[in-house]
Simulated scan of single mutants.
Amino acid sequence: MPKIVLMMSVSLDGYIEAPGHDLGWHRVDEELHQHMNDTVRRLGGLLSGRRVYETMAAYWPTADADPDASPVTVEFAGIWREIPKVVYSRTLEKADWNTTVVREVVPEEVRALKEAATGDLGLGGSEVAGEFLRLGLVDEFRTYVHPALVGHGTRLFPEADIAAPLDLVESHTFSNGVVLLRHAHAAAT
Rank of each mutant, 00 (worst) to 15 (best):
K3G: 02
M8Y: 04
G14Y: 12
P19K: 12
H26T: 11
Q34M: 12
H35I: 02
M36C: 06
V40S: 00
R42A: 14
L46A: 08
L47C: 03
L47H: 01
L47K: 00
S48Y: 02
G49S: 07
R50Y: 03
T55A: 03
M56V: 07
A57F: 04
S70P: 04
P71W: 14
A77Y: 03
G78E: 15
I83Y: 02
P84A: 05
K85I: 08
K85F: 00
V86F: 01
Y88S: 04
T91R: 15
T91P: 08
E93W: 08
T99P: 11
T99Y: 05
V102Y: 01
V105I: 07
R111F: 07
E115K: 13
A116V: 00
A116L: 01
L123C: 02
G125C: 06
E127T: 10
V128E: 04
L133W: 01
R134P: 09
L137N: 10
V138W: 05
D139C: 10
R142L: 04
T143E: 07
T143N: 08
L149F: 15
V150H: 05
H152Y: 09
T154N: 03
D161F: 09
D161P: 09
A163I: 04
L168F: 06
G177I: 12
G177K: 13
V178C: 12
V179Q: 08
V179I: 15
L181N: 13
R182P: 00
